[in-house]
Structure formats: C-alpha cells, structure tokens
C-alpha cells in the first residue's frame, strides 16, 4: 500500500488552492461600490434630516423668543399705563386739595 505512505501529500493535492471563478472580482467590486453609494446616500439623508430638525428647533426657539419679547413689551406698557394713571390721580388729588375738598362723596360726584 505505497500510496498511503505519504498520505499528507494526498491531502496537499486534494486541498490545493483553487482559483477564484472569473467575474468574482468584478462582482465584489460592484458590491463594494454599491455599498459605498448606499452609505453616502444614508449619510446625505441623515444630514438633510438633521438640517430639517435643526431648522424646526430654531423655528420653535425663535417663536418662543418673539412671544417672550411681546410679553415683556406688554408688561412695560402696562407699567407705563399704571405710572401715568398714578401721576394723573396725584394731580387730581392736589387740585381737589387746593380748592378745599377733603373728601368726595360718591353720590355728589355721580350727580
């Protein structure tokens, strides 16, 4: 049984390297290109989505700022109106004092 003497040689011959089939290289390159394109597409979509979300967030923030400014303006106007009213009331009080009116009865005023 001399053929079994060098069984390892049989193993080497049986398991020798086989060539990759023609076209496999192109198929892999094509798949790699597709994968790269797909990733770029996803990255762009993600960038656009991020941009939209940022714009929406800025929009909400800007709107809140406008409302806060409007509220502040309204508060100042109210304060000014109160100050004017106070000043006017003080003047009326002084005028009444100057003509000797200490108290005003509601019934007399309404008449």
């Amino acid at each position: 049984m001399t053929e079994w003497d060098n069984f390892e040689d049989h193993l080497r011959a049986s398991l020798r390297r086989v060539e990759a089939p023609a076209g496999l290289q192109e198929r892999i390159l094509h798949a790699a290109r597709l994968r790269r394109l797909r990733r770029q597409l996803w990255l762009r979509a993600a960038a656009v989505l991020l941009l939209v979300i940022s714009a929406a967030a800025y929009g909400v923030f800007w709107r809140l700022q406008v409302r806060a400014r409007q509220a502040e303006q309204a508060r100042r106007q109210l304060e000014l109106a109160i100050q004017i009213t106070n000043r006017r009331l003080s003047q009326v009080e002084q005028q009444l004092s100057s003509i000797g009116v200490k108290t005003i009865r509601f019934e007399e005023v309404s008449q």
């Binding site: 390297r17 198929r27 892999i28 798949a31 790699a32």
Partner: peptide, 27 residues
Amino acid sequence: QSLVYSLAYHALGDRAAAEDLTQEVFL
C-alpha cells in the same frame, strides 16, 4: 481572492456558498 475563495470552497464544498462567503469577507 483565490486564497479566500479556496479556503471557503474546501470548507463548505459548495462553489456558490464559497463565492458568497468570499464576497462577505472582502466587503
């Protein structure tokens, strides 16, 4: 490519599966 294909082919005994595995490995 032949190194990877051949390892996969001898391990799996199937040309189509060896091609698929070679593609996965290179990707």
